[in-house]
Design a protein around this nucleic acid. Structure first.
Lengths: 117, 117
DNA sequence: AGTATAGTTAGAACAATTCTAATTTAAGGA
DNA sequence: TCCTTAAATTAGAATTGTTCTAACTATACT
């Protein structure tokens, strides 16, 4: 792991804020002012490929990056606010269904948040 | 519903192929050669807003549009091939958890497809 | 018919991400 | 330590899916 890869991994894992690439870029600049956007994207892609972090693609919003501990997401359909939620772990039941042939899953729940109701 | 809205709805509902906006545009041109891309996007957005169709945002691929009957998706992490799958319906258990405050959910399962194994 | 409203159009604009080619850094011998 | 090669990083151009804009058209309602 290069210093950038490590630092980006740390930023994503420490934050509980579902950061965008741009926010990660800004944060990284505090430590390495000369860093380039391309480095951020390169390393984010690398980290996602090896499943060290998780990319969140949600309709109508740009990609966000999240730590990889098992959890689900709750998204307000109006304001798009995104919060963590822990629903029942489906790993075993999906594994069974797919004959063990399974990598990960991603569960998003849409609702209207208290503020928007 | 305008003729375009209706036709776009039909195209998405008839296809079992998770079409992109561009593919829908091409198909629509067969019936209405003069149609504009903006019309396709406008109507797709409208149809998604009222939940008549479903937008699929999956990391690393462009948005696709799908009929809205309850089903889940299986995605190959290598080749990104996308297929339908029907896993256990989580609606009731999520509703319970959120005190009825719930719109819909979206479950994606990542695996390596037979071709890529 | 006349007027307001909604829908459509072409293409410019935008923004997130990827690409490119040059440069820098790191790693592993000799 | 120096040399060589591979890997990582850089700046900014390019790409691309999508939205925006302003003009135009169709539709619906008095």
């Amino acid at each position: 792991m290069t210093k950038y890869e490590k630092k980006i991994y740390d930023i994503v894992n420490t934050s509980r804020e579902h950061m965008t690439a741009e926010q990660i870029f800004d944060t990284l600049k505090q430590t390495y002012p000369g860093v380039s956007r391309a480095t951020v994207y390169n390393n984010l892609n690398k980290l996602c490929d090896v499943n060290l972090i998780r990319r969140l693609s949600i309709e109508g919003m740009i990609d966000r990056y999240d730590h990889n501990a098992r959890h689900d997401h709750l998204i307000c359909q109006k304001c798009k606010e995104l919060v963590d939620i822990n629903l029942e772990d489906l790993t075993e039941s999906i594994k069974e269904r797919l004959d063990g042939n399974f990598l990960s899953y991603d569960l998003k729940v849409f609702y209207i948040c208290p503020k928007c109701r």
